[in-house]
Design a protein around this nucleic acid. Sequence first.
DNA 1: GATGAATGAGAATTCATTCAT
DNA 2: AATGAATGAATTCTCATTCAT
Lengths: 186, 186, 186, 186
Amino acid sequence: MTHTTKTRIVEAALSLFVRKGVIQTTTKDIAAAAGIAEGTIYRHFESKDALVEHLFVANYVPLAKTLDTIQRRSATTMRKLESIVRHLYKMFDDDPTLFTFMLITQHDAVDKVPAGTTTPVAVVRKIIKEGMKQGSVRTMDPQTATHLAVGLILQPASAQIHGELSGPLSQRANDVVTALDRLLRP
Amino acid sequence: MTHTTKTRIVEAALSLFVRKGVIQTTTKDIAAAAGIAEGTIYRHFESKDALVEHLFVANYVPLAKTLDTIQRRSATTMRKLESIVRHLYKMFDDDPTLFTFMLITQHDAVDKVPAGTTTPVAVVRKIIKEGMKQGSVRTMDPQTATHLAVGLILQPASAQIHGELSGPLSQRANDVVTALDRLLRP
Amino acid sequence: MTHTTKTRIVEAALSLFVRKGVIQTTTKDIAAAAGIAEGTIYRHFESKDALVEHLFVANYVPLAKTLDTIQRRSATTMRKLESIVRHLYKMFDDDPTLFTFMLITQHDAVDKVPAGTTTPVAVVRKIIKEGMKQGSVRTMDPQTATHLAVGLILQPASAQIHGELSGPLSQRANDVVTALDRLLRP
Amino acid sequence: MTHTTKTRIVEAALSLFVRKGVIQTTTKDIAAAAGIAEGTIYRHFESKDALVEHLFVANYVPLAKTLDTIQRRSATTMRKLESIVRHLYKMFDDDPTLFTFMLITQHDAVDKVPAGTTTPVAVVRKIIKEGMKQGSVRTMDPQTATHLAVGLILQPASAQIHGELSGPLSQRANDVVTALDRLLRP
DNA sequence: GATGAATGAGAATTCATTCAT
DNA sequence: AATGAATGAATTCTCATTCAT
């Protein structure tokens, strides 16, 4: 079946974590939302913390890999960034909950990611650094450039989550790509 | 005296909230850090929530006013934005704790701000909209433009907080202003 | 087969009960150690309590009978006690786990023994009382005498269990028999 | 006042631990017996474990010191042991609960005693060893001798606790002292 | 105003037991 | 007989809040 107990726990937890925050969500909440007994959570996850970690790592690390794969398929720096933006925004539109979860847990959960693992931010940094070498990105501090680019990409998602923007995020992709181009071109 | 009990509570709370998060900070923690008894907190604030709200509102609303005042003193769109960036980054360098607190509580606390109050984001939006009218900002969706600009401004602060950038934030102001100019100019 | 499921449960439980204590041993522990599913325990025992009771009664009552049989084979009071000491200490050396289990559950489990059943302590008491009648044991309160004798017999076992004595317990038999002789002779 | 909250917790816990066992006694039980809220326990002890440890260490270590002091006041080996037996049995009669608690937690709690601390058993061992040197105790393995003596001393207490002996334990002191004399004299 | 002991409503977690397969 | 997922009551511990002093 597609709805195993574990799946139901994961989905219930994800939705609640996003709506109420991780700490404010109790195991009782999760059990109720998943339609199971509280103790059942512990048949599938060692602890609430382990559940959070699972949710994050199981999605964050693969995302980085996917972004890296996607980026390789495009030739130019701007095409690479464009494909990343489109992929992320489509992901957001398809499953805003999952995307939001990653966005809000990002900083707390970073230390749970095995050291040395590629992150989405690292993929963006790599593209920008290569672009500078080739001359397709203007010369500036690569770390600053990366964070400015990431800011441009994530802020619309963040605004959407907090109700300050509406409609599919994919609609904003063109604007963001244009902004990235203006930000980075020599 | 400058160090009234209330001040000590506020300072202790602010520092702890930023270091450990609002929920993870207990009233016991705050009392210990402030060197007072736990019960004393309730002489000055109705509840922990009220303390959080006070901390946010007492700083967020005045900040918006200050930013508005500052922006009025400059003539052009870009000067306005530049002065805002410089003010914010100086604020960050002077009191990273306060700035960080506002950044992290921003979204949870927004509903605690009296409706209709001007916010920092609203100030940026106003500048951009006026710029568009005058032709000093290229034509695009003003809401998107605002969020892209805010993303550019805040991401370096966020990166600094999470240890991904270092050194005074003021050093980054030029880069950010340049980025804003590239993003917005016609 | 010698290793039926029930046997494996019994052996796993005994070993864990002795090592970790009855309460601290979970049914999960037992199942894991026995290499079976948790539910399977309940095919063979009504409850964890019933398992404990089985373990105790199945060994404690027969032991009392064995000790009684052994004691009958010897002629004098001291020979009787000596044969009991040697039997117990050999039992300890052969299967310290089983012996230890009986020693530690002794007091909690006593009420689980069918009323009127002969216990090992009762066997010792009988020997001493008969000895007093015949004049081979000095006159004193028989109940006190019994407990002093039992104390002499069991303390070395207890010390061994708790790591305060080492080497085969059988080696101590002579010392204990001498002590019993000094304690009891007229 | 003599009945501070902490005292009430300690007394309630002691009594329950002895009656039901440490693990079977819940913090809820303790709070109910002490007439306080469950959370209040944690104002006075870090955890249930810490409470158990406190109860043991706060009584076991001083007891050893007291026994040592008492033993010094007597001249001969047998007088020393006699005074110890009388002190212990009086203690038992005065506060059977405390004595019982120490007896039942003895082995589990030993590792909680700071290494190198004198224990009651060590006091007995010292007396016996000195006795052997002086020739007032017959030659035998001192460790075995110690445990046999301890067995003689404690078994009546143990029997009393489990309802197999009744009346003041002090009444048994003479019998036990005689038994020790028979056991140890050359 | 200040204290700090006490509260009690939950929070996460454990575990003996059940039951459909 | 055996399984193992699921249960839910019970357990330890936390913490914002109250209140007599």
